[in-house]
């Protein structure tokens, strides 16, 4: 009897993202059972494992907006054989990058000090808070990325197409209807 192929280790994370891509991933619904015959999760919001072990596939949602994002992204790159950017924010910076045309200090002052809703407020400076970066970056500007799954979020069918292609040893492609930037 043939021994089943070892399951691929998959890690996922959300950096400067909204977890919408993770929700869309869960939206593959009952196909998750089939997928779990081929993969097992390492670090992921789905397992609550906090550090990334050696993995076959690392899936990163969200862009890079603070020092912690850089740290996690570098950990994923060093531990994962295949690194995947999922969604508009990881690929383009997305919504968080809409602050890139503003001065960061002005943003913080506006939100925490000058806004009428925060009288006497001050800019948070707890050492546990990761320092925000001057600009928000797509993840390919920080590490090498192997595959991209565009969409905001990519549909469950698009994510399923990615997994079925990769598990079959094919380069993932997204025909009309599965490739979207919105």
């Amino acid at each position: 009897m043939a021994t089943p192929a070892p399951r691929l280790k998959v890690a996922t994370t959300s950096l400067a993202g909204c977890f919408g891509c993770h929700m869309s991933f869960l939206d593959i619904d009952e196909r998750l059972f089939e997928l779990l015959e081929h993969i097992e999760f390492d670090r992921s919001p789905l397992t609550d494992i906090k550090t990334c072990g050696a993995c076959d596939i690392g899936i990163v949602e969200g862009g890079v907006c603070n020092a912690e994002n850089v740290h996690v992204l570098r950990e994923f790159r060093s531990q994962c054989r295949i690194l995947v950017a999922i969604g508009a924010c990881a690929i383009t910076g997305g919504l968080p990058a809409q602050r890139n045309h503003l001065d960061l200090a002005d943003c913080l002052r506006e939100v925490y000090q000058t806004d009428p809703g925060t009288p006497g407020g001050r800019i948070p400076n707890d050492p546990e808070l990761p320092l925000p970066l001057d600009k928000v970056h797509p993840i390919h500007e920080v590490v090498r990325v192997d595959y991209f799954i565009p969409g905001c979020p990519p549909s469950a069918d698009t994510i399923w197409k990615f997994f079925t292609d990769v598990l079959a040893g094919r380069t993932p492609t997204y025909p009309h209807g599965l490739i979207h930037y919105d």
Binding site: N100, H137, P138, H140, I149, Y174
Partner: peptide, 11 residues
């Protein structure tokens, strides 16, 4: 099949 802009974004 353009999946990423690839280059550094100018913003």
């Amino acid at each position: 099949q353009v999946e990423t802009a690839g280059f550094r974004h100018f913003f």
